[in-house]
Every structure is written in C-alpha cells, then in structure tokens.
Simulated scan of single mutants.
Amino acid sequence: MRRMQALVSAIIAVIGTCSIVLAQNYVIDQGTSDALTRYLHMNELRMVTAQFSTSPGGSKQLILTGFVATQFGRNDAERIATAYLNDPSVNMVDQILLDPHVEDMRGAAQG
C-alpha cells in the first residue's frame, strides 16, 4: 500500500512539472496525445503517458511522463513515440522515471 501511495505522489509531482515545460505557450494536441498514450500502453508501457503540443511558431514538443522498470523501457518509450510521430523536428522531453518496482506491479496485474 505504501508503494502505491509513493507511486501516486510521484505521478502527481511529475504532472506538476509538466506546466514548467509548457510555459512557452504550447497548445496541447489532445487527440494526438491520447492516441500516442494508447499506443504506448498497447506496447507494454502502461505507466507512460504522452503529451504532444505545438507552439504558435510551429515548434512541436512531446513530453513523456510516467514510470518504467529499466533504462531499456525508457529508451523503448522514446523509440516507439518517435516512430509513431515520424517527425524528426519534434523536441522530446523525457520525464519518465525509473522504478524497478514497476516490474513487480506488472506481474501482479497479470496474475
């Protein structure tokens, strides 16, 4: 139970820091964000979310947040998101946190 409370607290902290990155007047594309988040979840990254946004000047930004168990998972999330968007001009901000306990939660969810 304590692990879950710590996880929820960490998620809230990560979400709170997203506003810092968005201070440059980026407009969130909710449709793309939701679709990419679903795609990440379908690819075994169930605790990773994506927020895609565009600035008035045309700059594009992708913020990845959440948790993975390993650096491989973090790299995989970046690779999957990059391939999904297929746009090298997108600035990626990776705020994914490594937490080895995520693997424990994955096993519990499957059982």
Rank of each mutant, 00 (worst) to 15 (best):
M1Y: 02
M4S: 06
M4H: 06
A6Q: 09
L7C: 02
V8H: 10
V8L: 14
A10V: 01
A10L: 11
I11F: 09
I12T: 08
V14K: 05
V14C: 05
T17L: 01
S19K: 05
S19I: 13
I20H: 06
I20V: 07
A23C: 06
A23N: 11
Q24V: 02
Q24D: 13
N25T: 08
N25E: 14
I28C: 03
I28D: 03
D29K: 08
Q30M: 11
G31H: 13
G31M: 09
A35D: 15
A35I: 12
R38C: 14
Y39R: 14
Y39P: 09
Y39G: 11
Y39T: 12
H41T: 12
M42W: 07
N43W: 11
L45T: 10
L45D: 02
R46V: 11
M47R: 08
M47K: 03
T49M: 06
T49R: 10
A50N: 11
Q51G: 03
Q51H: 04
F52I: 14
P56C: 12
K60R: 15
K60F: 07
Q61K: 11
L62G: 06
T65A: 02
G66Y: 05
F72R: 14
F72V: 10
G73V: 08
A77N: 02
A77P: 06
A81K: 13
T82F: 06
A83K: 15
A83L: 14
A83S: 15
L85I: 15
N86I: 10
N86Q: 15
P88C: 08
S89G: 10
V90I: 15
Q95S: 07
D99P: 01
D99E: 12
P100F: 04
E103C: 01
D104Y: 00
M105R: 00
A108L: 05
A109N: 01
Q110A: 08
Q110V: 11
Q110I: 11
G111C: 00
